[in-house]
Write a protein that binds this DNA or RNA. Structure first.
Length: 159
DNA sequence: GCCAACGTTGGC
DNA sequence: GCCAACGTTGGC
């Protein structure tokens, strides 16, 4: 069995929050709308069922990792790409040759203590994360096992 | 609301 | 294939 990988998914909570994921049936959602090739490649080529996901709230107060989730279904075509009424419609993609892919994620646990971007920047174990590198605006990023473990440990502790 | 840093687009 | 213009992201 391949080694488990770890990821960070960004979402603006006003658009889709961790609470929204928790309130889904089976606490599972299709992660559609990814329209960046690098993120698409991670989804298509590297994500496996069971991989860990840090759920990050961007453009919020505070910006923070608020919980964890699991890859529940591996890459499959993002059908919203060829829905002309969808927000992320892409006329270049079609069912015969889908450009964009998505995974399903299932909520795992909400952190007792959201791990803020500020804390991440101050923590020597976390300060080299892609997340805090200037200009790293990927909505889906790989996270190392060490970073995963540190953030999960911080998130679990009450305060 | 500002604006820096990206990715994408399209003219040449 | 270059690169300027443009749109988007996302912290502040």
């Amino acid at each position: 069995m391949a080694e488990r990988k770890f990821w960070l998914f960004k979402s603006e909570p006003t658009n889709y929050s961790f609470d929204d994921l928790l309130s889904e049936e089976q606490q599972t959602a299709e992660w559609d709308g990814v329209r960046n090739y690098q993120a698409r490649n991670y989804i298509r080529d590297e994500m496996k069922a069971g991989d860990g996901v840090l759920f990050y709230h961007s453009s919020s107060i505070p910006t923070a990792v608020v919980g964890t989730a699991t890859i529940a279904r591996e890459a499959y075509p993002d059908n919203t790409a060829w829905d002309s009424k969808a927000k992320y419609y892409d006329p270049k993609s079609n069912p015969d040759n889908p450009t964009w892919m998505m995974v399903d994620i299932m909520a795992d646990q909400r952190f007792a203590h959201p791990v803020t971007l500020q804390e991440i920047k101050k923590n020597p174990k976390l300060s080299s994360m892609l997340l805090v590198r200037r200009g790293m605006r990927l909505s889906i990023q790989p996270v190392t096992r060490e970073e995963w473990e540190e953030i999960v440990a911080l998130g679990r502790q009450g305060q």
